[in-house]
Design a binder for these strands. Structure first.
Length: 259
DNA sequence: ATGGTCGTTACACGA
């Protein structure tokens, strides 16, 4: 079972790249973030033509998440509980039957939170607390859970080429990193970090200032696995090559194989 | 070095 996550930064602008990538890797489930599309405008047809089911949770202009899957989910959850007034589309969760097992996969687009010291940063921290609550609930089922997406958190200094440059940024604030650790410490495994301690294991390179050419990247796209999913983990990868494609997203796909 | 580059949208904004 191949599961992947990719912040695609605009699904309409990235449709050719998405189709090419699906044809190359043929994942069982792909979590997308920043589709920047309302549900009605999502380019379903060419994706369905490849044999995928398409479930979206979009909004106009910004944010938006989706789940593409070869088999149809049994059930879906759109949005995170805990804040009635929150209208930002950042969470979609599906449940699949994988042989004898149930598999739950969420596509997460965690708030960026910049600038620090504003309502945007408070919203990020509130959203992380809401995610922690949901993540805890999901562990109670003792099933396979994969929480995948753009967390907008740099967990540790090793996860940035230039950690000093991120000290004032919401992605690397002590509060953001603490909230990340709280999530992991519930009992989740950071799949990429479990697979490698290597430096310069990045998933995002800014469009600006030649960040890609300088490998000035950060690791902010993560896949958190429940103990049951982690015990089945047989492979982890970051498809760095995609960043060198024409008209790339600023993020690249992260993949896991579970047996 | 307070710039730089994208996507979506509508004449900025979020990242």
């Amino acid at each position: 079972m191949l599961i992947a996550t990719w912040n695609i930064n605009g699904v309409k602008a990235r449709l050719d790249n998405l189709i090419n990538w699906l044809e190359q890797h043929s994942p069982d489930i792909l979590c997308l973030q920043e589709i920047k599309s309302v549900d009605e405008a999502f380019p379903r047809a060419p994706i369905e033509a490849l044999g995928y089911h398409v479930e979206t949770h979009g909004q106009k202009g910004f944010n938006g998440v989706a789940l593409l899957s070869k088999s149809a989910p049994i059930s879906l959850v759109r949005g995170l509980d805990g804040e009635e007034s929150d209208e930002q589309a950042r969470y979609i969760e599906g449940l699949w039957q994988d042989g004898a097992r149930a598999l739950r996969v969420a596509s997460i687009y965690l708030p960026n939170g910049n600038p620090v010291g504003t309502e945007k940063f408070d919203y990020k921290l509130r959203w992380m607390a809401r995610l922690e609550k949901r993540a805890k609930q999901l562990l109670a089922d003792e099933g396979d859970v994969v929480l995948a997406g753009d967390y907008n958190v740099i967990p540790e200094p090793i996860d940035a080429k230039r950690p000093d440059a991120w000290l004032g940024d919401a992605l690397f604030q002590p509060e953001s990193r603490t909230a990340w650790r709280r999530l992991v410490n519930l009992g989740y495994t950071d799949a990429v970090r479990a697979a490698t301690d290597a430096a310069e294991t990045f998933t995002f390179w800014d469009y600006q200032a030649g960040a890609w050419q300088k490998n000035n990247g950060i690791r902010i796209d993560h896949m958190l696995l429940s103990p049951e999913a982690a015990s089945r983990l047989t492979g982890v990868g970051i498809d760095k090559d995609v960043r060198s494609w024409e008209k790339p997203s600023d993020h690249v796909p992260v993949l896991i194989q579970i047996g």
